[in-house]
Design a binder for these strands. Structure first.
Length: 566
DNA sequence: GCCGTTTTCGGCCCGACTGTTTTCAGTCG
């Protein structure tokens, strides 16, 4: 069972209401209202329970008076009488089957009504042929089995670089076909989400059939899931799905726009288009009155038609980018080329693989003006000797300035790992949590705030401590933490390491609203990892950060003023 | 059930693919 009253759990509750309504055959738009509300809660950066405590539930678009009242009842009493009565009218076991990809409400009910009680039971009864006698076709059962297999895989998501590599390989393979004019990875990969669930690829061609046939012969394929006239889905050997959608080149802009998403961005855009007399699909734009079709080879044309600038893919989440684009008010967001230095790296003085000079020279190669070596502050570390070594390196060359820093643990009792006298001797201090991640929310918040208020502390590194696909982040009152960070001038890090990407994008945007400033750093433990910066940039762009929000876009002289060392 | 610079009523994005169907329902993106 999920933790009660988390966004995820509340979203799941509403999703179940939607499923039950579907079974009961209620009005389609009423059903969709629950889906919309569920999506909205899942995608909002704010904690639903906190919003409720502040009486701001109805500020979430998609939550109106009815659902807000139900949620109020839920968060107060732990249940909703109306929902309970709805759930009683459908088979109780159906909800567990909804977790299987490919199984929707209708199928789930049919499974439950046949007497199957669990997913494991379902798998056995399909394999034994038992279910075949209960009005299911063999192909349907094969599909369900495949869904169960997918459900049983440990994770259904992939880190951004991993999915990116696979997508690149598939796209390169597609481009070997002479009929492919363009091919690009789209979807969440193009929007640069921290984890990716499947790979969406668009291709432009005048020979759709040929290209789709080529696609399903990709050597790294496990099996073909589906194949039609314009789309096909394969299961890649890695376990990830790859969807291909093809269009002629003169419609490619529409395909790019459609397939980049997000779903909620597209829905909003299409509603807007409708108000202006257009109907948008992946095939093009239709003028509703005249029935005339408009073609777009580039997606910018579609946005322009609607009187707006083209939002960068990273922010197409329907979280205000459409409104901003209509007013031409999307800021120039940060880019990799804005980055001047890296402020969180490790050397062989702690758990890094390379020496100070190796790290520094590799960073200089990447065009960085400065690099902070922030080794873990093991109490046994010879701090003075390390500082001397770094100073010596700085004297020996003028390609790059090495800043001597430390990464210091925030202890469970809110003290820091080492004494203030040692902190003061260093130019840059990062603090971070490496123990007691599951501390209770209030205590955790106080623990962090105390560390941020220490005048020697410059940066709060990988704030949530999450490890993507492995470990959830800590629970804390982020609003309070951001307020303190803004007041004390403590910088918040976006850790670019691909399994961290921490602070997460939604919280980045939230923090910016409080006036927090950021660093984007690689946390490199090896020279090869210094180029992971691009992943941190993706997070920052998704969080709407501009160059001015990020201090390591500054040249060294200006950075020095901010960090107050001499 | 939600929403509103045209609206507090009457709309609500748009389409593909599969299965087991002779015209559609279910699921997905």
């Amino acid at each position: 069972m999920e933790n009660k009253f988390t966004n995820k759990e509340v979203a799941a509750l509403l999703r179940n209401v939607s499923a039950a309504y579907q079974v009961k055959g209620l009005n389609y738009f009423q059903i969709r209202a629950y889906d919309t509300a569920s999506d909205a809660i899942e995608n909002t950066a704010s904690d639903i329970k906190t919003l409720w405590e502040q009486g701001k539930l109805d500020q979430i678009p998609g939550i109106g008076t009815h659902i807000a009242n139900y949620l109020d009842e839920y968060l107060t009493t732990g249940k909703v009488r109306h929902f309970e009565s709805v759930f009683r009218q459908v088979p109780e076991d159906m909800f567990r089957f909804l977790k299987i990809p490919g199984v929707g409400p209708k199928t789930a009910v049919k499974i439950a009504n046949s007497g199957v009680v669990s997913i494991k039971d379902l798998e056995e009864r399909i394999k034994s042929g038992w279910l075949l006698k209960h009005d299911f076709g063999q192909k349907t059962l094969d599909n369900i089995l495949r869904g169960i297999e997918e459900f049983n895989r440990k994770s259904d998501r992939y880190l951004l670089p991993i999915a990116g590599e696979i997508a690149k390989d598939v796209v390169n393979y597609l481009k070997q076909n002479k009929d492919v004019v363009y091919a690009d990875p789209l979807g969440s990969l193009r929007r640069r989400l921290s984890t990716v669930g499947d790979i969406d690829i668009a291709a432009a061609t005048r020979n759709p059939k040929g290209v789709l046939n080529h696609f399903v012969k990709y050597p790294g394929i496990h099996e073909v899931i589906e194949k039609g006239d314009t789309t096909a889905t394969i299961l890649h050997g890695s376990g990830i799905h790859a969807d291909l959608m093809v269009q002629p080149p003169n419609h490619y802009g529409s395909l790019l726009q459609h397939f980049t998403g997000s779903k909620s961005h597209n829905i909003h855009l299409r509603s807007l288009a409708k108000e202006k007399g257009y109907s948008i699909s992946e095939y093009g734009v239709k003028e509703i009155k005249s029935g005339k079709s408009l073609e777009f080879e580039k997606e910018e044309g579609i946005y322009k038609l609607l009187g707006m600038e083209t939002p960068i893919p990273e922010i197409r989440e329907d979280t205000g980018e459409i409104e901003a684009a209509l007013e031409n008010k999307i800021p120039r967001l940060i880019d990799l080329k804005d980055i001047k230095g890296d402020l969180h790296t490790h050397s062989s003085w702690s758990d890094g693989q390379n020496t100070i000079s190796e790290m520094a020279e590799a960073a200089a190669q990447l065009g960085r003006e400065y690099i902070a070596l922030t080794d873990h502050s093991y109490p046994s570390l010879k701090f003075e000797q390390r500082i001397k070594d770094i100073e010596q390196f700085n004297y020996s060359q003028d390609k790059i300035r090495v800043i001597y820093g430390l990464e210091v643990n925030i202890n469970v009792d809110a003290t820091l790992q080492i004494a203030d006298e040692i902190l003061e001797r260093h130019e840059l201090i990062l603090v971070s949590i490496h123990t007691s991640f599951r501390q209770e929310k209030d205590l955790m918040t106080k623990r962090i705030i105390k560390a941020l208020e220490n005048p020697n502390v410059d940066i709060f590194a990988h704030p949530t401590g999450r490890l993507l696909l492995e470990r959830e982040g800590i629970e804390a009152d982020w609003e309070q933490i951001f307020k303190v960070a803004a007041r004390t001038g403590t910088l918040i890090e976006i850790d670019a390491y691909p399994n961290r990407l921490d602070l997460p994008d939604t919280l980045v945007r939230e923090a910016k609203r409080f006036g927090v400033r950021f660093t984007i750093c690689t946390d490199a433990h090896h020279t090869d990892q210094l180029n992971l910066m691009e992943y941190g940039i993706s997070v920052a762009r998704r969080g709407w950060l501009e160059p001015k929000d990020v201090v390591n876009t500054l040249p060294f002289e200006k950075l020095r003023d901010i960090l107050k060392f001499d």
